[in-house]
């Protein structure tokens, strides 16, 4: 653990009346890291994030951002960009007025034209927010989050509603900011984005942090899979495999290279054609499903 984490969450609890939304959540985010906080629906990640962003009070526990309580807006917000899950812009303001307003209120300085260009909204400068599409509003939201190149950026479902080009452009900007040392906290339902981009991932379920680590650390505990079908009348392959339907088989393995070689050697030796052969590493989806099926904790 770092002695100077950007975010330090310790035994955080969030309650709504009798409902215990976040239970004893603890984690740290290191400088320059992209940390993805993922979870099933209702896992408590939004509640946790709102406390970390300073929008909500914790029932108990401590949260520090840059060593300060997150509610100390004057100290933290000039260093922090927040992309909210829902846009929260006024329909009656234009794109440039919206970015300029948030920029001024956060105390950060930037070149408005350049920021709008990075999110491809230069041609919408004088357009009112009410006339923007859903994707354009998300890009506007992103523009306000990265305005002034903050040290810490919260991205809450950043690519929801964006087309593929806009997604790529957004991640390019995030990558540039990270190269300059920015720390990023991401929540997303697109697991492949977290798998590709995150340095570490925290998986929440029913209010608790169930797993945390790098993608390889999280996927290590679950087997990879080899799938194939055999022609009718063929003998069963030598390794442990389970037929899923008819002549289709799935081999679950913790040693993909060894088991795949063994399977191919067996097929060669017996002149068997492995139909539809595919070998896939463990994906974050599999870990996510495993976590989602875990029973509730008290």
């Amino acid at each position: 653990m770092s002695t100077n984490p950007v975010i330090d969450v310790d035994e955080l609890n969030v309650r709504y009346g009798d409902f215990h939304a976040v239970k004893d959540l603890s984690f740290q985010v290191e400088p320059g890291e992209l940390y993805a906080l993922l979870g099933t629906n209702g896992a408590g990640k939004t509640s946790a994030l709102e406390v970390i962003e300073g929008h909500r009070e914790a029932a108990s526990g401590t949260v520090r951002v840059f060593g300060q309580p997150p509610t100390d807006r004057g100290a933290i917000r000039p260093r922090t960009g927040i992309m909210l899950q829902e846009s929260g812009f006024s329909d009656d303001l234009t794109v440039s007025e919206s970015v300029r307003l948030i920029g001024r209120l956060t105390g950060r300085v930037d070149a408005l034209d350049a920021v709008l260009k990075t999110v491809d909204l230069s041609h919408k400068t004088d357009t009112r927010v009410s006339q923007l599409s859903g994707g354009e509003k998300r890009r506007l939201d992103f523009a306000t989050a990265v305005y002034g190149r903050p040290e810490l950026i919260f991205l809450d479902e950043p690519t929801t509603g964006l087309d593929i080009q806009s997604r790529d452009a957004l991640w390019d900007v995030v990558q540039q900011l990270r190269e300059d040392g920015a720390t990023v906290v991401l929540t997303t339902h697109y697991l492949e984005e977290a798998q590709q981009r995150a340095d570490r991932i925290g998986l929440m379920h029913q209010g608790t942090l169930r797993q945390q680590g790098t993608v390889s650390e999280l996927t290590r505990a679950l087997p990879a899979s080899i799938q194939f079908s055999l022609p009718p009348g063929t003998a069963t392959p030598p390794m442990h495999s389970a037929p899923v339907s008819g002549n289709a088989y799935v081999v679950e393995t913790f040693d993909m290279q060894r088991d795949l070689k063994q399977l191919l050697d067996w097929a060669d030796d017996h002149a068997v054609e492995l139909l539809g052969l595919s070998a896939a590493p463990t994906r974050l989806d599999d870990v996510f499903r495993a976590v989602g099926s875990e029973p509730a904790t008290s």
């Binding site: 929260g88 006024s90 209120l105």
Partner: peptide, 17 residues
């Protein structure tokens, strides 16, 4: 109106008290 559109939340995500 500002609360309904989350504009208040947006303003609270800045340094303004």
């Amino acid at each position: 109106a500002r609360r309904q559109t989350l504009f208040l939340k947006r303003l609270r995500s800045t340094a303004a008290s």
